[in-house]
Every structure is written in C-alpha cells, then in structure tokens.
Design a protein around this nucleic acid. Sequence first.
DNA 1: ATACTTGCAAATCGTTTGCAATACC
DNA 2: GGTATTGCAAACGATTTGCAAGTAT
Lengths: 149, 149
Amino acid sequence: MSQRRFTSEVAEWVKGVGLRPTKQRVALARLLFNHGHRHVTAEQLHSEAKAAEIPVSLATIYNTLNQFTRAGLLREVVVEPGRSYFDTNTDDHHHFYFEDSGSLRDIPGDQVELGNLPEAPAGTSVDRVDVIIRVRENQGHNAGRTSTG
Amino acid sequence: MSQRRFTSEVAEWVKGVGLRPTKQRVALARLLFNHGHRHVTAEQLHSEAKAAEIPVSLATIYNTLNQFTRAGLLREVVVEPGRSYFDTNTDDHHHFYFEDSGSLRDIPGDQVELGNLPEAPAGTSVDRVDVIIRVRENQGHNAGRTSTG
DNA sequence: ATACTTGCAAATCGTTTGCAATACC
DNA sequence: GGTATTGCAAACGATTTGCAAGTAT
C-alpha cells in the first residue's frame, strides 16, 4: 500500500485489477491513495475532485468507488443509516466512530483482541468481522472511560 | 424483557418511557415485543401491521421505531447502506450478518471476548461497541470456518 | 472498430417532515 | 379542551440507472 505518485504507475495499478485506466478513475485513485489512509464519502470525494479540477460526475464517483470496492482496493464502512465511508485501508482493522462529528478513526487490527469468537453458522464462512467502537464527546467530566461498563 | 401479552400491560409500559400509549404505538409494541427477540426493518413491521389489521402509516412506523429507540426499548443496527434493523434485544450483544439473505442473528455478549480494547480517544467516552460478523454461504466446500484468517 | 465509460437527468430507495385531522388525558 | 399524535403526501438525501456521446485498446 505504498504511494503511487505517478499517473502511469496508478494507471498500471488500476489496470491490474481489471479496470480500464480512464482519466477519471486514475485521477480518483490518485486522490484516494496518495495521501495515506483515508475515509471518504462519495460527496467528499466529489468535492475534492472538483477542487482538484478533475471533471467527474457524482454518478461516476459512485460507480468508481463501487468498482474499487469490488476490486478489493477499498472497504466500505457503514456507520449510520445514510452515512457510509470508503476506507482506503483494506487490512484487517477496526474503527472508532465519533458520533458527534460523524468521522472515523482506524484501529489497527492487533489492537483489538477478538478472543473466543463463536463459530460461523453451519454452511457459512466468515467474510469479515467489523468492530465499531462508538464514542461521543463527554460534555461533563468523567474523561477517558474505556469500556461500555 | 418478559413478554407483555395484554394491551393494558403494554400500554403501561409505553407510558412508562414517556410516550402516550396510542392505539398504534401499543399495537406496534405488541408486535415487536411479544414474540421473543426480533430484528425488523420499518417496511417489515409495516407489512406485519397490515397483516394484523392494524391501521398505521409507514411514517408512523418510522416515528415509533425512532421513539422506541430513543427510549431505549430498541437498538438500531446498520448493516449495509440502506438496510437498517431495529433490534428488540437491547442487552450487550453482537451480531452475525448473513450477507446473502440480509438477515441478522444475535450473538450473546458473553460469546465474544473483547479483550484489550484501545482507550477511547481523549475527551470521548465509549457509547457502545458493535461487533458484526459478516458471513456468507459457502457454495464450495470448506464449511465451518471460524476466523477471518 | 468495438466495447467499455462517462455524464446527465430521471428514477429509485429509505427515511423525514409539514400540516390538517384526530386521539389521548 | 388543549396538547400530542397520526396520516398523507410532498420533500429529502443518498445512491443507482438508462441512454446518448465520448474514450481506451
């Protein structure tokens, strides 16, 4: 997951997952993957693209994000009805969700011990395990609690 | 969380959380809470209500589900963009999510060991921790895997 | 040249809301 | 009677889709 600075490099990469390296796909890939790990919504990426003078429609943003997700380049994280993020980190990891701001923060996979998980129901296999720790700003005192109690 | 079979009992219960025990609220409460723990969508509940000859609009279903959730009678679980369930089990517990059928199954809280959780970021407190184990039917062989690997 | 992509606008889905009519206390 | 609630339909935000025009191989 090192950064791919050059357009040609990104183009190869996109091609590598079976997608035509079109102008918008390559441009979006650069926006997404050249700035470290990110959590973006479709709207956010659209704004960024506009700011970066990349002509791309919102529909194409959605299509591209979905294609990238199917290709394994992104992972979708749903936190609330009507709020879903695309995470450029596809490694095994989890999330803090800040209920006040609506933002996400990665938690490295090894920082959560998931011991003793129940077996997948008969006839099924585990696709992935999502852990979302929902936190909110404590207006009063009692800072730094760590467990749900 | 024992079952409340009688309308008057349910009415008291609804009143107890600060909501007027109207005909539709009480009827919906009975549908929701008299059949063991359930995971329902608004649409599902609406269909059930119609089937049960309970005249209630979809808008009221949504309002009621949200009020019940705020009152702590229900817990909302978002599994995919555009698919959220209301869970009548508000105890500390987790979920299997069947990606093929789109359905949920409870996992008792004590069946998941969440060891060593990272501290809540400074200035925040943990509201709750959601664990969703996403499983899918294995079309091939390799039945009964248990971990993501 | 041909198949894949894009962009637009319309369509769709799930959900919320304004407001007049109605039900509860 | 007065306030909370309902229902309808319209509004809404997020996402998808049909189709004509454009682009990559």
